[in-house]
Design a protein around this nucleic acid. Sequence first.
DNA 1: TTAGGGTTAG
Length: 779
Amino acid sequence: MGLPRGHLRPFSTAAVRLRRPPSGSISHEVKDNKEWQQELEQHIARGQLALARQVFDRIPAPDARAYNALIRAYSWRGPFHAAIDLYRSMLYFRVPPNKYTFPFVLKACSALADLCAGRTIHAHAAAVGLHTDLFVSTALIDLYIRCARFGPAANVFAKMPMRDVVAWNAMLAGYANHGMYHHAIAHLLDMQDRGGLRPNASTLVSLLPLLAQHGALFQGTSVHAYCLRAYLDQNEEQVLIGTALLDMYAKCKHLVYACRVFHGMTVRNEVTWSALIGGFVLCDRMTEAFNLFKDMLVEGMCFLSATSVASALRVCASLADLRMGTQLHALLAKSGIHADLTAGNSLLSMYAKAGLINEATMLFDEIAIKDTISYGALLSGYVQNGKAEEAFLVFKKMQACNVQPDIATMVSLIPACSHLAALQHGRCSHGSVIIRGLALETSICNSLIDMYAKCGRIDLSRQVFDKMPARDIVSWNTMIAGYGIHGLGKEATTLFLSMKNQGFEPDDVTFICLIAACSHSGLVTEGKHWFDTMTHKYGILPRMEHYICMVDLLARGGFLDEAYQFIQSMPLKADVRVWGALLGACRIHKNIDLGKQVSRMIQKLGPEGTGNFVLLSNIFSAAGRFDEAAEVRIIQKVKGFKKSPGCSWIEINGSLHAFVGGDQSHPCSPDIYHELDNILIDIKKLGYQADTSFVLQDLEEEEKEKALLYHSEKLAIAFGVLSLNEDKTIFVTKNLRVCGDCHTAIKYMTLVRNRTIIVRDANRFHHFKNGQCSCGDFW
DNA sequence: TTAGGGTTAG
């Protein structure tokens, strides 16, 4: 036959080594081809592929039928290379392949995603006029789609003289697997209109995950109705269809329907359970998700798999239930599943989210072949645990190991720059996403907006925002929040209005960002207006976070009594964060009586954080009541709470320099302290007086003045003055709020050293210039 | 048919 010379590589001699003496249960008799064929097929039917191969090798002159039987067996479960090798040997011995050969050898190519071999075999089939055969064409479509070649797949489909539902399904599965929603829907309609075919169970099993991915609940419900009408949910594929429907409802966050499908199923498998558990996790109903997981275990241990445990581990991470998480870890180890990559990554992520970053690192080291997700889980673990520099090291290691970062990796990495307030690192990460072609991805832009805002470049945030091809609600919220931390309440409001004009519905987070922006800008009336708008116009039920913002807004604006009344009128029981916001304002406005009252309320709730002890102690100190301040600190110590030390840092030429109060560890310390002493002399000439009420200990006035002078933010600024040219802005970040005395002193520093100074503290940005601060002393 | 890392607020 006239097969064209293809590009298949020459087969190995091993592949054509024939006629070995028989062994084992192989017959020694002389047989005709029909008898050999029977023996061959018997072994194949029993799954004895090695014996089948021995029989095949005994056949003196195997015909196409013998070749096809073995190729089909190999293409079913592998080894797939053996199927292709056998096809090559068929060509070598000039046994013409037929319409029963091509579909199976193509299936093997598809399993190996071997496009090169597949194309050659396509050419062979075309040469003998078999390329438009129904089964050959379907196998070709499968192959091309597996290799993401939609054009050739569509060409093959178009040339088919007749198509059955399997052929239509092959194309549909391709569109669906690649998330091509519109192509898939158009193809489905075409199948019914032009093809005159009704979708079968396979059609819908391909289609439903796509609908789930796109949250297409309406279409999904129509599919459900179709299943019921066509009795598709009652055949032997009930588990597949039922699970796909359940998953679609779960991903569309319609758990009532998902549960209804689940309870209506008479047969369930591990996937069914995993899909439902995943749905509850998606809807943040963690306790119910975990109960379902336990029910699943009760129903049968055979359901335990890496996938179902992955959801359960996510629940443990979210509920911070480490005890249960470690039990699951043990369960996985006992079942031998812990070596699975999914399971390993899930465990690693659980420990990282629980703050046990060392355990997470150990697990990471134990994973033999790490993928992008393993690196991503560890990297985000470091970022979430405040170890931004370690996160960069993981990123470097990832690149060294040739594991490609993807969108999620970069979205995890970019906030590390925000945490360090390291603009240089941030710009490098921006460059990195540009090189990778990811710079216009919505989630990437969102983290860039946030990063630039937190690194003091709100102008660059806005540039990224303006250039985005598609924005989501997070984009708008992040930009509004960015304006908020820069004290640009008016800009935040303007952006909110244009968001509405562009047809975006604000969500609960939008209002948190907006009210916080008003709070940081002293726009008390506007903030109150937006809170009312949120509840009355948008029907958003305020969460504790909204109340915190409102108390902060009122109290910081000086309306301490109104804030107190507001807390009393809350429908929720105010938690420590709400009272903490009021206590913080009592400190700023030096209202000791209310501060004491509030601190009593906090004590009733039980101390849940260290910040409140510090605040209360500060209030007493500010009033000169040092004994009581000391008492609060003793209680704090006895109860085992540690105050995080105030720390400031500054980036000079891409390197970070960190300082704590009174720090002398920096190599330039003598120069820094000398410069600070000179600055103190100069600013005193302009009228600066140290506000010693900010000193927490009972010291002599002069000592108090020194204690203030060496606050971490002042040390960092002095280092900035020494290291940067006059035209450069000094940008300092502080982990706590900037102290009141420093705030005053920095204003004077801008005058005596002719500098622009930006301090990003735990709360907001302070732009100091010409003796003024952008916050208008409202911090 | 399921599943593992990611962006906003307080």
